[in-house]
């Protein structure tokens, strides 16, 4: 499975389009991370717990998108976009979408 945020896969030709595939996940931060982040928040700087949480969640959203593409018989997803929206205090939705295609 080749993933790309461009409209074509470099060096490959698209032979078939399957349509839009999406993947999402909604995550809440857990209390341990929240307390650590709260302390870190006084002096500023990177909140590592949150960085990890968000990149893990984004990976899960991408994996779900890939799963959907595979079930359609695609071997690549092009024009992938990411979006984040905060649903409520402390919870966020991470969302990935793209176009499932078959390349040579």
């Amino acid at each position: 499975m080749i993933i790309s945020n461009t409209e074509t896969i470099p060096g490959r030709k698209i032979v078939e389009f399957y349509g839009v595939v999406t993947g999402n996940t909604v995550r809440a931060k857990h209390i341990g991370r929240d307390i650590m982040a709260g302390l870190k928040n006084i002096v500023g700087g990177e909140l590592k717990g949150y960085t990890e949480l968000l990149s893990d969640s984004r990976k899960e959203a991408t994996d779900r998108m890939i799963e959907q593409a595979q079930s359609m018989g695609a071997n690549a997803v092009v024009n992938v976009r990411f979006a984040t929206s905060s649903i409520s205090q402390g919870a966020a939705e991470l969302f990935a979408y793209g176009t499932a295609v078959r390349v040579e």
Binding site: I2, I3, S4, N5, I9, P10, G11, A37, K40, N41, I42, V43, G44, G45, E46, L47, K48, Y50, T51, L54, S55, R58, T62, V80
Partner: peptide, 23 residues
């Protein structure tokens, strides 16, 4: 891709960070 590039393989890569401001 710029014209003088020819690719043999490709994939999506990403990097992210969460940073906060001090009090």
């Amino acid at each position: 891709m710029p014209d003088n590039w020819t690719a043999s393989r490709s994939d999506l890569v990403s990097g992210s960070v969460v940073i906060s401001l001090d009090y």
